[in-house]
């Protein structure tokens, strides 16, 4: 009895990570904004204004104390690119502030674990599927064997 209870109380199940409950992305703070210089790169000197119609707008953000530089030109909108550059900068700074040398933010760790977890679950599922197949195969073999035996018996009996 005692052993049964003990068994039910100790479990070594790992904490499951959920996709919608990840640690938040690092925030870009006002302090960081003050430490950064922003440059818009529009392809050097030459004509400007109405004379030329630029389609892209590259944003470059430099964090002066650490010297980190990030650029963004993923969208056509400078507004969006500025937001994107700031997100990247916050991420880079968060990576830098982690002391154990792994260069992984809590979110990165969680994402990695989530990946592993999903992989494991997939493997488990496929193994289960194969097990079912195996069982079926064996059952089929057994049936065949029984049939064969009965036929043999009939022949030998005669």
């Amino acid at each position: 009895m005692y052993s049964l209870i003990r068994r039910s109380l100790t479990s070594n199940a790992i904490l499951r990570i959920k996709r919608n409950h990840l640690p938040p992305r690092p925030k870009f703070t006002a302090q960081m904004e003050n430490d950064c210089t922003e440059v818009f790169i529009h392809g050097g000197s030459g004509a400007g204004g109405q004379k030329i119609n630029k389609t892209n707008s590259k944003v470059q953000l430099k964090h002066i104390p650490t010297g980190i530089v990030v650029t963004s030109q993923i969208t056509r909108s400078r507004d969006q690119n500025r937001k994107d550059a700031r997100e990247r900068m916050a991420y880079e700074l968060a990576k830098l502030s982690i002391s154990n040398g792994s260069q992984e933010t809590p979110r990165d760790v969680a994402l990695r674990q989530l990946k592993q977890q999903n992989k494991k679950a997939k493997l488990k599922k496929s193994l289960k599927k194969y097990e079912v197949h195996k069982e079926e195969k064996e059952r089929f073999k057994e049936l065949q064997r029984l049939e064969d035996e009965s036929i043999l018996e009939k022949i030998l009996g005669d």
Partner: peptide, 24 residues
């Protein structure tokens, strides 16, 4: 279209396309 600040501005022929300098 052309993004302009937080807006998305429709662009058609015979009308000037907004420039990034104007946006700024």
């Amino acid at each position: 279209s052309q993004p302009f600040g937080s807006l998305d501005i429709q662009c058609r022929r015979h009308v000037l396309i907004p420039r990034w300098e104007t946006e700024e």
